[in-house]
Design a protein around this nucleic acid. Structure first.
Length: 496
RNA sequence: GGCGCGUUCGUCUAGCGGCCUAGGACGCCGCCCUCUCAAGGCGGAGAUCAGGGGUUCAAAUCCCCUACGCGCUACCA
């Protein structure tokens, strides 16, 4: 395969959907694997559904994932413009040419008539589709319609016999009977082309060699092939990718949860993990490798390892993979990535150690939470006590571990406070050494004693290792919290 | 309704006629490690390969039928 040209052709009608991005990713990988070009073309031919900002969001999604494109909006290229709304003359010319050659025709049927026709067909349980009434209009009839200024569309005159087949790169040969397709619209009455015409004209004009798109497009391939034929173009190769499904096996959509790639970014996923996970939805390297670098992907991607069935988007596995990538990051890198999320949380949870985040503290905290978070956004919920002055908790059952009573705890806190003053460096090694000894002196098990201290120091019973946590917190804060614990306990005992 | 595509553990998948008493991963369960939580290590449960017919010495792998799922059937893409 030499210099393949592939494209990603989204329409700006909504969020950058996971499924679309996966298609973009496969196209990009294909281009990179075989040293070709990846072009982005915006299919903005639907005036009704156009959504401001959608195109920008789509490009942002690509950028976030690291899918750079060789030609397209913003970067230009030799086959521009890359917005279909700016290429109208091409579609008009192609449509007119087919009309002139009798391969397409103007249709003057009103929306009302078409609706009525469909209702009748449904009632008769007949084959639904345009009945071709305007296909056989006489010259005189046409002239009259034109004279009256009737609005019209242009329909493609589908052959009424024969078959059309495609040798799909992923599914093999698929064949359809032509008579099963109606005369579909190629130019709308607003002067814009429909998807079918625009995609064919542009893929040809932009010299696209391989069309890799979602499986939902397979049934319209014969229409496209017919258009290629009618226009005298030689068609590209087609490959139809399996779809991405929700847990109920329906096409993945909003009601299944987050579907926009940008939502995943905001939720705290890493683009590297997203790419790795998405590529596995319909492709595999071998029988065991799942975590792969982008480079490995580019070096090994191939269509013959694309699977056929739709794949359910498994959030749990994505989360696991994100954790794998988080653990793999150098701590400084993780700190930088986590900072924006943490800053937002600090802002929301004032008062605390005020944003912006103290870099030294964050750098000290990151190694402690790195293997405990699955999302970049989880630092606050896993380690808020690192960033707050006061921690809150119920002094009862949490502070008083199993097998202890209030007096024991009080005494243990007292002795700890006493010892802490003598630890010169307040490093975790010294803390551990000294406090382990103290546990023995007090006749408490490490579990009991450290459990009590953990709650007193962090307010939680599940935290990173105690001594490292204390080291990061620092002597003053730890002492303040231990004092605070004593007060809480005393207050509670007073009530009792 | 018609047409098309699909169907291997709950999920993502390996498998392209004998290596399969079907492998890996997520999730789940247990054990180990251990100051808690994670991470990690080890082990386990979990798929009669949708069902039924063929072809073959031999089928998850090839063919046919059926079932089920999904997609398409617009002046949406």
């Amino acid at each position: 395969m030499e210099n393949p040209r592939v494209r990603y052709a989204p329409s700006p009608t909504g969020e950058p959907h996971i499924g679309n991005m996966r298609t973009a990713l496969f196209n990009w990988l294909f281009a990179r694997r075989y040293g070709g070009q990846f072009v982005v073309r915006v299919e903005d031919t639907d005036q009704e559904r156009f959504e401001p900002g959608a195109q920008e969001a789509m490009l942002e999604g690509l950028k976030w994932l690291g899918i750079e494109y060789d030609e397209g909006p913003g970067v230009g290229g030799p086959y521009g413009p890359y917005l279909q709304s700016q290429r109208l003359p091409h579609y008009q010319a192609a449509a007119e040419r087919m009309v002139d050659q009798g391969l397409a025709y103007r249709c003057y049927c009103s929306t009302e008539r078409l609706e009525q026709m469909r209702a009748d067909q449904a009632a008769r349980k007949a084959f639904p589709g345009y009945d071709g009434r305007c296909r056989d209009l006489t010259g005189a009839q046409r002239e009259e319609l034109v004279a009256r200024g009737e609005p019209s569309v242009i329909r493609f005159a589908m052959p009424r016999s024969g078959t059309t087949s495609v040798e799909d790169l992923i599914r093999g040969r698929v064949e359809w009977r032509n008579e099963l397709f109606n005369d579909f619209v190629i130019m709308k009455s607003d002067g814009f082309p429909t998807y079918h015409l625009a995609v064919v004209v542009d893929d040809h004009l932009m010299n696209i060699s391989h069309v890799l798109r979602a499986e939902e497009w397979l049934p319209s391939t014969p229409r496209h092939l017919q258009l290629y034929g009618a226009l005298g173009y030689s068609p590209p190769r087609f490959g139809h990718l399996p779809m991405i499904l929700g847990p109920d096996r329906d096409k993945l959509s909003k009601r299944h949860g987050a579907t926009s790639i940008l939502e995943y970014r905001d939720l705290g996923y890493l683009p590297e993990a997203m790419v790795n996970f998405m590529v596995l939805l319909g492709w595999s390297l071998d029988d065991k490798t799942e975590v792969m670098s982008r480079q490995t992907l580019v070096e090994n991607f191939s269509l013959d390892r694309v699977s056929l069935g739709g794949a359910i988007f498994d959030q749990e596995k994505l989360a696991w993979m994100n954790g794998v990538y988080i653990r793999d990051l150098p701590p400084e890198d993780l700190a930088a990535r986590v900072a924006p999320y943490l800053e937002a949380d600090l802002e929301k949870n004032l008062p605390c150690f005020k944003p912006p985040v103290d870099q030294d503290r964050l750098l000290a905290v990151v190694p402690l939470i790195q293997e405990r978070i699955k999302l970049l956004s989880e630092v606050w919920e896993r380690g808020a006590f690192f960033f707050q002055e006061h921690v809150d908790y119920e002094p009862g059952a949490t502070l008083i571990q199993k097998g202890m009573d209030g007096d024991t705890v009080m005494w243990a806190l007292e002795r700890t406070l006493g010892d802490l003053g003598y630890i010169p460096d307040f490093q975790h090694e010294s803390l551990e050494q000294s406090l382990r000894k103290l546990a023995g002196d007090l006749g408490l098990s490490p579990r009991q004693f450290f459990g009590t201290l953990r709650v007193a120091v962090t307010g939680r019973n599940a935290t990173p290792p105690l001594f490292e946590t204390m080291e990061v917190l620092g002597r003053e804060l730890v002492i303040r919290r231990l004092n605070d614990a004593q007060e809480r306990l005393a207050a509670m005992q007073g009530e009792a």
